[in-house]
Structure formats: C-alpha cells, structure tokens
C-alpha cells in the first residue's frame, strides 16, 4: 500500500481574515452594545431614583460617612471638620439653612445638615443624605449674606430636587455595567482601566440640574430678601476670581455659563425687584474662632 500526505491548502483550520479587523469589529460591537445598555439603564435609574424615600437615602449616606470616616482615620490625617463644635459660624449657617429650607418648602423629613470645612478650597457642594459642604475658602470670598444665601440655597435646591440620589443612581448603574464587562473579560488590567475611567467617586450634576437648582435658589432668595442681588454678585465674584488666578474648584463643579448669568438677569427683570436693594451684611466675628484655631500658639 502506498501512503502519502499531500500538501493541504492553508486557511482551512485557521482564518485568513486579518486579526486587527476582528479586533475592531469585536471591540466596537461589544463595547457599543454594553455602552448603549448601560446608558439606557442609567437613564432609567436616574428617573426612578426620586422614588427612593429620603429616609432610605439618609441611611445610605450614614453608611457612606461611616466608611469614609474609617478611611480617613486610617490615613491619620488631621480632621479639619469642625462642624460638631459649637461655633458662631455653625450657628449662623444652620440658621440660614433653616430659613432657606422654609422658603423652599422642603418636606419635613428632608433635613439639611450643613458642614463647614476649614479649608482654603473655594468650593461648596451637596451630597447624599441632605449634607451640604461649605468651605472657608469660598465663604471668605463672599461679601454679604445674600451671596452666602445664594450658595447655600443652590446646594439645598439640589437636595430638594433629589439631584444627589439621581446622580448616584446613574453612577451605580454605569459602575455595575463596567464591572460586568471587566469581569466577563476576566482581565485584571481591563478591570483597572474601567474602574478608573468610569469612577463613581464624584457626583456630577448635569447642566439642567444646575439650572433647576439656580431657579429654585433664586425663588427662595426672593422670598427671604425680596431681591436676588446676592446671586448676581456671587457670579461676578466667581468670574473675577477666574480671571485673576487659578480657577476656583467651585467653577469646575458648577460650570459658569453666560446662559446661567443671563437666566439670573431674566429672573431679576421678570420679578421687577430692583427698586430698593438692601444687602444683608455678614455678622461680625464669623471667622475669628477659626483663625484662633488654625494658628495655634
């Protein structure tokens, strides 16, 4: 018997198509489908998040704070949160927050907790559980109570409209989608890339949410003071700060657009409240306690 192994043509057991072609088809296909699904779910989560009762949000926020406290204690950094202490600043901000809460007609279960942070950061933000953070750096820039009230009213309005929980809902869904993909790919490298790029760390509010918060804040300012000149002043100060030195962080979390300033002016002229402007000064000695604390002898 005669045995032979003739030459077998190439490309039967292997594919002749270019591997890069498959790479692009697969990455765009898989990632595209996952991205669309994640976006859809995120949108849905954002819409449904407002039906989460505020009490539940409070519980979650407590857990987050507990966790964060544990983390900061581990790092043994000096804790510059002094809101537990009974300072004139704390009193003042609490009173102002109470006034604004009444003006915005917050539901009774929606308790606002103002945290005053002794730090140079020019920023303020609202987060889960009705917590509003104000930094000394920002407060020092503000010339009168009206501007402080505008900042506070804006952040409280975020909470009134449930913006933190909506953003968190969106963030959690996107984070879950990313985790799903990375674990399906089973690659620790991809895992790192995805978690770092789509991080949940910062709650970011959309431009619409900022506008909504602005409108509510303006309404409450008008109710309290009869005019909204603190608001325009706040943004003027921010604009000046932006042109003279490094952009304050407040502007990166609250992008300042001409549209936003225009909206304030429209509000002003619509309600025709420019007759008699009385700006409320800040009470004396607000920062005194702080300076004593920050410069120990």
């Amino acid at each position: 018997m005669d045995y032979q192994n003739p030459k077998i043509p190439e490309g039967i057991n292997t594919s002749t198509s270019h591997p890069l072609k498959e790479f692009f088809l697969l990455t765009t296909g898989v990632l595209g489908v996952v991205a669309i699904a994640a976006l859809l779910f995120a949108l849905l989560a954002e819409q449904l998040a407002i039906y989460i009762p505020f009490e539940t949000e409070l519980k979650w926020a407590e857990k987050i704070t507990e966790y964060k406290n544990r983390e900061t204690n581990k790092q043994s950094e000096p804790n510059n949160v002094i809101d537990s202490k009974d300072t004139p600043m704390k009193h003042y901000l609490d009173e102002l927050a109470a006034k604004i809460s009444t003006a915005q007609a917050l539901p009774p279960e929606m308790k606002i907790t103002v945290h005053y942070q002794d730090s140079d950061v020019i920023n303020a933000f609202a987060t889960l559980g009705g917590h509003v953070f104000l930094f000394r750096g920002l407060l020092e820039e503000l010339p009168n109570e009206n501007a402080v009230a505008m900042v506070l009213a804006h952040e409280i309005a975020h909470i009134k409209h449930r913006h933190p929980i909506r953003s968190a809902g969106r963030g959690i869904i996107i984070g879950m989608a990313l985790t799903m993909v990375s674990s399906a790919l089973g690659n620790s490298m991809i895992n790192q890339v995805l978690t770092n790029t789509g991080g949940l760390a910062v709650l970011k509010f959309s431009r619409d949410q900022e506008d909504e918060a602005d409108q509510t804040a303006l309404e409450s300012l008008r109710k309290i003071y009869g005019h909204v000149f603190g608001a325009s002043e706040l943004f003027e100060i921010m604009q000046q700060a932006e042109s003279t030195r490094l952009t304050p962080e407040f502007l990166s979390t609250h992008p300042l657009s001409q549209q936003r300033i225009n909206a304030i002016h429209t509000f002003q002229s619509k309600h025709n409240i420019a007759e008699e402007i009385k700006l409320t000064p800040l009470p004396d000695g607000l920062f005194k306690v702080l300076t004593k604390q920050t410069t120990p002898e």
Binding site: F23, L26, G29, V30, A184, L185, G186, N187
Partner: peptide, 13 residues
C-alpha cells in the same frame, strides 16, 4: 496579550 484580549471579547459575543 492581544490574542488573549480577542478571545476574551469572543467570550462575550
């Protein structure tokens, strides 16, 4: 690494 990544994507599709 490249082949492994392609195979991982195939794992999904």
């Amino acid at each position: 690494y490249f082949k492994r990544f392609l195979a991982a994507l195939r794992n999904l599709a």
